[in-house]
C-alpha cells in the first residue's frame, strides 16, 4: 500500500486529468444537454472541476481523503444546478470511506457510498435516464470484480469503465423520469444523458491515471 503522499499525488493527478478531460468535452456535454436539457452541463462540469484543480496548492498538505472531500465541497460551491449537489455532495459524503487511506477495499466502500448518496439525493433509480444509469453498472461491476473475482483494482476499474459505457448507451433509448429531461416526456427518447456521459468520462480518467 502506497503512503499518504503517493496517494495524495495520485488523487491530484486524477483530478488534473479529470478537469482537463471535462474541459475538452465541454462542448460535447453541452450539446447533449441542449437536446434534452438546458445547455449548461458542459460549462457546469468544466467550472466545477476546473476550480477544484486550481486548488492544487491548498491541497498540498492534506490527507488524501481530505483532498477528496474538498473536491466535493468545491463542486458544491461552484457548480450549482442538479450536478453540483449530486457530484459534489456525493463525493464529499463518500470521502469518509477513505479516512483510513485508499485501498482496494476502501475504494469499493467509496464507490458504494457515492452511488447511495446520488440515489438518495436525486431520488432516481436505474432507468430514469440519469447519471445513475452509468453509476449502477460501474459500481456493481467494480465491487464484484474486487470482492468476488479478486481482480486487481486496475483491472476492476477497467471493467467498471466498460460497464459504465453500456450504461451510457442504455440511457439513449429510454424515457427520462428524473432531471430536466423528464419535462420533455417522450421527446427525451433517443438522446444520451449528459450526466451519465460525464460520469463515464470521469471514470475513464481515473483509469487512465491509475494506468500511468
Amino acid at each position: 500500500m502506497a503512503d499518504a503522499e503517493t496517494q495524495r499525488e495520485a488523487v491530484l493527478d486524477a483530478l488534473d486529468n479529470v478537469a482537463e478531460r471535462l474541459a475538452e468535452e465541454k462542448e460535447y456535454l453541452t450539446d447533449l444537454d441542449s437536446a434534452i436539457g438546458d445547455a449548461d452541463h458542459g460549462a457546469n462540469m468544466e467550472r466545477g472541476f476546473g476550480k477544484a484543480a486550481d486548488k492544487r496548492e491548498e491541497f498540498a498538505e492534506m490527507e488524501p481523503n481530505e483532498v477528496v472531500k474538498n473536491v466535493g465541497t468545491t463542486l458544491i460551491s461552484n457548480v450549482g444546478g442538479a450536478s453540483g449537489p449530486l457530484y459534489g455532495g456525493s463525493i464529499m459524503f463518500a470521502s469518509q470511506e477513505l479516512e483510513g487511506g485508499i485501498t482496494a477495499e476502501t475504494s469499493v466502500a467509496f464507490a458504494e457510498a457515492y452511488l447511495d448518496k446520488v440515489k438518495d439525493r436525486g431520488g432516481a433509480q436505474v432507468g430514469a435516464k440519469t447519471m445513475v444509469d452509468a453509476l449502477v453498472p460501474a459500481v456493481h461491476t467494480y465491487k464484484k470484480s474486487i470482492e468476488q473475482d479478486d481482480l486487481p483494482p486496475l483491472e476492476a476499474l477497467a471493467k467498471a469503465v466498460d460497464a459504465a459505457e453500456r450504461g451510457v448507451a442504455f440511457t439513449v433509448p429510454i424515457k427520462a423520469l428524473k432531471g430536466r429531461a423528464s419535462f420533455l416526456d417522450w421527446r427525451s427518447v433517443g438522446h444520451q444523458d449528459p450526466g451519465a456521459t460525464s460520469t463515464l468520462f470521469i471514470l475513464e480518467e481515473l483509469l487512465e491515471t491509475a494506468e500511468e
Binding site: D38, A39, D40, A43, N44, R47, I76, S77, N78, V79, G80, G81, A82, G84, P85
Partner: peptide, 11 residues
C-alpha cells in the same frame, strides 16, 4: 446562479 444553473447551496 450561472445562466440557467441553480445557485450553489452555500450561496
Amino acid at each position: 446562479g450561472e445562466v440557467f444553473t441553480s445557485p450553489t447551496a452555500d450561496q
